[in-house]
């Protein structure tokens, strides 16, 4: 029972982590809570659904295509709604703009697809493997494997490549990076693209795993993922991973051992508790006041 729940928690948590990474990377560079990020995730789930249902894509191909589509969407959103505000306004106006995008995108999808819940056709065999007393479904294995792969890839990119170095420089000091000749706008676009792609992968996998896709699925998932990013220490990439996993585990355990009607409250309650004990989040660095 316990191990089963832990596995479920890890599965849910790794999808939170995938979405949380987008929040944390964008936040790390432009200090914006990108509220439209949950909607990108929702668009990813729908893109995958359409490709699988109408174009006969297999799951992996649909996921890759959805990631590509959301990359473009993420770049577009940044261009239209955030870039014009950068540098000339407070962070809060950018936040409102992000909320506007979020409302716009979820309504757009509701108009196109209706507000009903859609289901993926059977794209993956209902097969499960036994690991001792543990039941492991194929989809769970896929989610865990794909998430791990994407996160390792991301970590490699951020640490080892030129663009990753530029991203790290921008997250330290945007102005100084600009003065050092880094094309800041390009780095920001790239960050949005990568974050959006990760969210899309999460969206497709959640859509299949829970067999439900609907236009407002982005809101609660987005809030939870943001909570995970904050819990891990916003701006920190390993923090988002750990935050996502712990939030997923806590939520599943809370439902299993406490009460299912308080599901959402448990996740947020844990978050508040963590922040009260460690105000900078699990992996965040303590920022000493600069005077």
């Amino acid at each position: 029972m316990f191990w089963e729940q832990l596995l479920n928690g890890l599965t849910l948590g790794s999808t939170y982590a995938l979405i949380a990474l987008g929040y944390t990377m964008v936040y790390g560079i432009v200090q914006l809570i990108n509220f439209a990020h949950g909607e990108i995730y929702m668009f990813g789930a729908f893109a995958g659904l359409i490709l699988v249902s109408f174009f006969g894509f297999n799951l992996i191909a649909a996921m890759l295509a959805a990631m590509l589509f959301c990359m473009l969407l993420g770049i577009l959103v940044e261009r239209i709604a955030y870039r014009p505000l950068r540098g000339k306004s407070s962070r809060l106006s950018a936040l409102i703009s992000a909320i506007g995008v979020s409302i716009f995108l979820s309504t757009l999808m509701a108009l196109m697809a209706g507000t009903n819940t859609h289901r993926y056709p059977e794209v993956i065999a209902h097969q499960s493997y036994h690991l001792g007393s543990l039941d492991l479904s194929l989809m769970q294995i896929l989610i865990l494997a794909v998430s791990a792969l994407l996160m390792i890839g991301l970590q490699f990119m951020v640490q080892k490549t030129r663009i990753g170095k530029a991203m790290r420089a921008c997250s330290q000091d945007l102005d100084a990076s600009y003065l050092m000749g880094i094309n800041v706008n390009r780095v920001i676009s790239f960050t949005f693209a990568v974050g959006s792609a990760l969210a899309a992968a999460g969206g497709v996998m959640v859509g299949v795993y829970y067999n439900a896709v609907w236009p407002y699925m982005g809101m609660m998932a987005g809030l939870k993922a943001f909570a995970a990013a904050v819990m891990g220490g916003i701006g920190s990439i390993p923090g988002a991973m750990i935050g996502g996993l712990s939030l997923g585990i806590m939520e599943i355990m809370g439902v299993a051992y406490l009460s299912s009607s308080y599901k959402d409250a448990i996740a947020f309650g844990m978050l508040i508790l963590v922040l009260l004990i460690r105000p900078q989040g699990l992996m965040g660095q303590k920022i000493s006041k600069k005077v």
Binding site: S93, I96, S97
Partner: peptide
């Protein structure tokens, strides 16, 4: 709501 969302973005810009 589509207009509402767009309105927020435009006003902020």
């Amino acid at each position: 709501l589509l207009f509402y969302g767009a309105l927020l973005v435009i006003l902020m810009i």
